[in-house]
Amino acid sequence: MDDSDAQERGPRMLPQTETGNPNRESVAVTPLLEVADVRHEVRGERQKTTNLILSDVSLRARAGEFISIVGPSGCGKSTLLNLISGLAKPTGGTIKIEGQQVTGVRPDVGFIFQQDALLPWRTAAENVQLALKFRGVPKAERRQRASEWMDRFGLGALHERYPREMSGGQRKRAAIAATLVYEPRLLLMDEPFSALDVQTRDFIETDVLSAWSQTQGQTALFVTHDLEEAIALSDRVIVMSQSPGTIVSDYPVDIPRPRNIMDVRTTEHFQDLHKTIWADLRKQVLAGAAPGKGQ
């Protein structure tokens, strides 16, 4: 049912929304996101020591790119998203979105968390409307817009459900709809599917990818520890080192779009890419796990 839905919208998927195409690189003068020499330290538990979480992270993202960040656990990839979202401030370096320095949470950035953070006392529909409510959108309009997004994510029959009455996959869909409803320019995702079973994950990824491809150049930054997922979704896969995290490599993923999440993994090209990137990622994982270096 998800597939037919995507096909139905097929004609609207104009070539210029199929991004990640290097030929159009020259269009964007300022990158949508620019992370320059970011380092981040946090105070240790006894307040005396500081832990370096990120060191010299630099990264640029164009409008319309889908970028995944992979790395060993504890490498600071979630911290990087927190800094970009404006929820936390880096101790060094700059983060700019559309040329403006990030000083706090921005209305054109969306963040989908690992844990579903729906308000438990609000129904699914109310949760999906929240961002519009915060933006002062009139009631009738926000109800309609939320309803459209809920339909796209297969939540049409669940408007009046409270989060506890929904499955993990349904809650995740609601959380995604709640973020996409205000059409952020930059979409941050922090291991959003790690708690889901494989089938549910494939379905939701398909819907997310289809929603993203229909936007006018939404940039997605996707943190995961699952390399297959990263390659299947992205235009670029960035590998981070073990802690303190820094970017060690940046691989373009030249698999044509639209992609079928479920089939793409079986192609030879995918497997070659996976082999190459995994060889790199594996080094980082092993370096983190080496005796004396573990945390």
Binding site: L87, F111, F113, L130, K133, F134, A175, T179
Partner: peptide, 18 residues
């Protein structure tokens, strides 16, 4: 209060009052 709820609300655009 769950920190995730607060962060999520902030990201969705909630001000202090909201």
């Amino acid at each position: 209060v769950d920190q995730d709820l607060l962060n999520n609300a902030r990201c969705l655009g909630a001000g202090r009052f909201a």
